[in-house]
């Protein structure tokens, strides 16, 4: 089984978010980048397929050379090969089209993407890839097993789970539940050394431009001051909600 794991290179969740150039660009200064958590669950599940079912695992990212450490980390964790499509992503659609080109050429049986990246939270890429390459698609996956060409996928739905049977080739949008947080792996030193010898192929992008572009970003308003009201003084609370907060 040939598996492709899509890896987004995203700011660590503890990063301080700022914008530059008149609030039109994300300020990467001092920001630590990590594998998108939803992708990391998928990568870990892919490692399980590699170890238990002999799958071959390639990881891919659409991005500039600055994203290579993230791919190297995925190789150190255990992926067999990495591909970087050498272009700075414009929007979700352009990323999906770049990925679709590579997927068609590589004839992957299973494509594991995170259901969304935690930077821009578009959540569009996995579904678009499936549409562009004509593969089956299940989103919000919290469980995945493959036997032959059949896949059993567990999908999170409102208030419960749905188990879906489908066939390869398949694209999934994965999330926590594919594996648990305690199953996530950190690379070890031998893995880091072995990653040196694994191929990281840089492919030039297809000529695809984005359909959208960001005009400006805005941070949420800072939290206001807190007023404490005694539990015995409900009249004051009502008055504050009515006269100051103007919510009742």
């Amino acid at each position: 089984m040939k598996i492709l794991v899509c890896i987004s290179h995203v700011p660590d969740t503890t990063s301080k978010i700022n914008f530059t150039e008149g609030d039109t660009k994300f300020d990467t200064n001092g920001v630590q980048f990590v594998i998108n958590p939803n992708d990391e669950f998928g990568l870990t599940r892919a490692m399980w397929f590699k170890e238990k079912q002999g799958a071959n695992v390639t990881v891919i990212n659409v991005g500039g050379a600055d994203t290579e450490p993230t791919l190297r980390k995925a190789l150190a964790i255990g992926a067999d090969a990495a591909i970087r499509v050498n272009t700075v992503p414009a929007d979700g659609f352009s990323v999906a089209k770049q990925l679709a080109t590579v997927i068609k050429d590589g004839a992957y049986d299973l494509v594991i993407a995170g259901r969304e990246s935690i930077d821009y939270n578009g959540g569009m890429v996995p579904g678009m890839i499936a549409g562009l390459v004509g593969a089956n698609f299940v989103n919000n996956c919290i469980g995945l097993e493959v036997e032959g060409t059949n896949a059993k996928v567990i999908r999170e739905i409102d208030g419960g789970k749905e188990t879906v049977s489908t066939n390869l080739p398949l694209v999934i949008g994965g999330q926590k539940g594919l594996v648990e947080e305690t199953d996530l792996r950190i690379p070890n030193m031998r893995g880091i050394m072995m990653a040196r010898k694994k191929p990281l192929t840089v492919v030039e992008p297809s000529s695809i431009s984005g359909e959208t572009s960001s005009m400006s970003f805005e941070k949420p308003a800072p939290k206001g001051a807190v007023t404490l009201v005694s539990a015995d003084n409900l009249d004051e609370l009502v008055s504050l909600l009515h006269n100051e907060a103007k919510v009742i």
């Binding site: 290579e68 450490p69 190297r72 980390k73 150190a76 030193m189």
Partner: peptide, 10 residues
């Protein structure tokens, strides 16, 4: 190097 940083961050 990127490898040093990966070693350290790991």
């Amino acid at each position: 190097t990127d490898e040093h940083k990966l070693v350290r961050d790991t």
